[in-house]
Amino acid sequence: MSYLIDVYYEKVRPQKNLVSLGLYISMFPQLIAGPIVRYIDVEKQIRKKRKFNFEQFSEGIKRFIVGLFKKVVIANQMGFVADFVFDGTGYAGAPSYWLGIVCYAFQIYFDFSGYSDMAIGLGKMFGFDFLENFNLPYISRSIKEFWRRWHISLSSWFRDYLYIPLGGNRKGLARTYINLLIVFFITGLWHGASWSFIVWGLYHGFFLILERLGLEKLLTKTPRLFRHAYTMLVVLFGWVFFRAETLSSGLSYIGSMFSLNNNYNEVFQYMNPYFMFVLFLAILLSTNVKTYLLRKIGHEKTTTILSYIKHPFYILLFVFSLFELATNSYNPFIYFRF
Rank of each mutant, 00 (worst) to 15 (best):
S2P: 03
Y3N: 05
Y3C: 05
L4H: 14
Y9I: 13
Y9Q: 13
K11F: 09
R13V: 11
R13I: 11
K16I: 12
L18E: 08
V19R: 10
I25V: 07
S26G: 07
V37H: 06
R38F: 07
R38M: 06
I40C: 10
I40V: 13
K44P: 06
I46Y: 12
K49T: 14
R50H: 08
F52Y: 15
N53W: 07
F54W: 13
F54C: 12
E55D: 15
G60I: 04
I61L: 10
I61Q: 05
I65P: 06
G67S: 11
K70M: 14
K71Q: 12
I74H: 05
N76E: 08
N76C: 09
F80L: 13
F80W: 12
F80I: 10
F80T: 07
D83W: 06
D83Y: 10
V85R: 02
Y97E: 03
G100K: 01
C103Y: 02
I108A: 01
F110V: 04
D117P: 06
M118E: 00
A119P: 01
G121Q: 00
K124N: 11
F126W: 10
G127D: 06
G127E: 04
D129L: 03
F130P: 00
N133K: 04
F134I: 08
N135R: 15
P137C: 00
E145S: 05
R148S: 12
R149G: 01
R149M: 02
S155P: 08
F158K: 00
I164Q: 07
L166V: 11
L166W: 09
K171C: 13
A174P: 13
A174L: 14
R175I: 08
T176Q: 14
N179R: 02
L180N: 04
L181P: 05
F185A: 09
I186H: 03
I186V: 12
G188Y: 02
G188Q: 04
L189T: 07
S196M: 10
F197W: 03
G201D: 02
G201R: 00
Y203E: 09
F206P: 00
L208T: 03
L210W: 01
L210R: 00
L210K: 02
R212E: 11
R212V: 08
K221G: 09
T222I: 08
T222F: 06
R224F: 13
L225N: 11
Y230R: 06
M232K: 09
W239T: 05
V240C: 13
F241W: 09
A244N: 04
E245F: 12
G250S: 06
S252Q: 14
Y253I: 08
Y253R: 09
G255I: 01
M257L: 00
F258N: 08
S259K: 06
L260R: 11
N262F: 14
Y264P: 12
V267P: 00
Y270H: 13
M271L: 14
M271A: 13
F277L: 15
V278K: 04
L279H: 03
A282Y: 04
I283R: 07
T287N: 09
K290N: 13
T291Q: 15
L293R: 07
K296D: 09
I297T: 15
E300S: 13
I305R: 08
L306H: 14
S307D: 09
F313T: 02
F318N: 01
F318A: 08
V319Y: 00
F323T: 05
N328F: 06
S329D: 14
S329V: 10
Y330R: 04
F336Q: 13
R337V: 14
